[in-house]
């Protein structure tokens, strides 16, 4: 059922989207902020990378995408920390504005084809040769490096401050740390990872499209939750690695679904259901336990209620 090509494809995509899962790990889990900038920042990364590659600078496209993503994160963070916009709304506002920005970056066209363009992938192919698994090496390499840097970063004083901001903001202010600053740094870093994911994806599939980011935040969360529920118990590094593994597993689930002739139009609905169920699971379980207790109490016939 799964041919080698399909397995490689799922691994490659899994590693690319793992950057989004790690970004959401940082914003959603560590900082405890639901960052809706994700969709727009992803496309921004795609657009920057594609435009740079078409202009002949495929490698430069990656840091440019990260900078642009950080800028988008900065705007969301500024809206919520300096101007009192609720955090979810701040992300949605930035995301809406980014649609125009992304079109502008792509020269006011809804897609950028790169069929004959030199990309980081073709450059590595020329080095490693046609037969080598150069795509997988590149995708896995970028994600591994970013994952290692993220884990190292979260162990630094600044990283500790960011983690504490999500864990107990009162205590952070009492430790002379400015939460506005830590939230800003956290969102800049997470959105630069999201943009990097988009940047690698654009060069991987040789095109950038304005709609690529739709639902990205849900897909990232699905990956994050899958990883957490399977491997996420333990230290910080384990949780970060779990996000990567979750993303790869998610891509395998999608690959199998496509093989089983699930129409690709249905995938977003499936992702949405996975995320809704996973996040609702503890509440559903609590309600179920309560109802069972109540039912058994009623059967007792004493009618305490």
């Amino acid at each position: 059922m799964l041919t080698t090509a399909v397995v490689f494809n799922a691994l490659e995509l899994g590693f690319i989207y793992a950057l989004v899962a790690m970004a959401l790990f940082l914003s959603f889990r560590v900082l405890n902020v639901a960052d809706m900038t994700t969709d727009g920042a992803f496309v921004l990364g795609c657009a920057m990378s594609a435009t740079a590659a078409v202009a002949g600078h495929p490698i430069l496209g990656l840091p440019m995408a990260m900078l642009a993503g950080a800028a988008a994160g900065f705007i969301t963070a500024a809206l919520q920390t300096r101007f009192g916009v609720p955090s979810i709304l701040a992300g949605i506002i930035t995301n809406t504005g980014l649609y125009t920005v992304n079109l502008a970056v792509m020269g006011f066209s809804s897609n950028v084809p790169m069929l004959k363009t030199t990309t980081i992938f073709t450059m590595l192919r020329d080095v490693m040769g046609e037969k080598a698994p150069y795509k997988l090496v590149l995708c896995a390499g970028v994600t591994t490096v970013v994952c290692a840097l993220l884990i190292l970063f979260l162990g630094t004083r600044l990283g500790l401050s960011i983690r504490a901001t999500g864990d107990n903001p009162d205590m952070v202010r009492a430790s002379s740390i400015n939460t506005a600053f830590t939230i800003t740094v956290g969102l800049c870093v997470s959105n630069s990872m999201t943009a990097l994911s988009g940047a690698v994806l654009a060069q991987y599939q040789k095109s950038a499209d304005i709609n690529l980011g739709t639902g990205m935040v849900v897909i990232g969360l699905a990956s994050l939750i899958i990883g957490e529920s399977l491997f996420g118990r333990g230290g910080l590094w384990r949780k970060a690695v779990a996000a990567v593994i979750g993303s790869v597993i998610y891509r395998f689930i999608i690959a199998i679904a496509l093989r089983a002739n699930v129409p690709s139009e249905c995938l977003k609905l499936i992702s949405a259901c996975i995320v809704a169920l996973a996040i609702a699971a503890p509440t559903i379980k609590a309600n179920y336990d309560f109802k069972r207790r109540r039912a058994s109490a009623m059967k007792g016939g004493k009618g305490h209620a």
């Binding site: 004083r157 500790l160 983690r163 504490a164 864990d167 107990n168 205590m171 430790s175 002379s176």
Partner: peptide, 24 residues
């Protein structure tokens, strides 16, 4: 901060002293 270790919590409290040290 409940999800951070004792050592990490103390390191945060210690930040007040170490203005000179790098954030990294």
């Amino acid at each position: 901060a409940p999800n951070m270790t004792i050592e990490e919590n103390l390191a945060l409290a210690f930040l007040r002293a170490s203005r000179q040290t790098s954030p990294f």
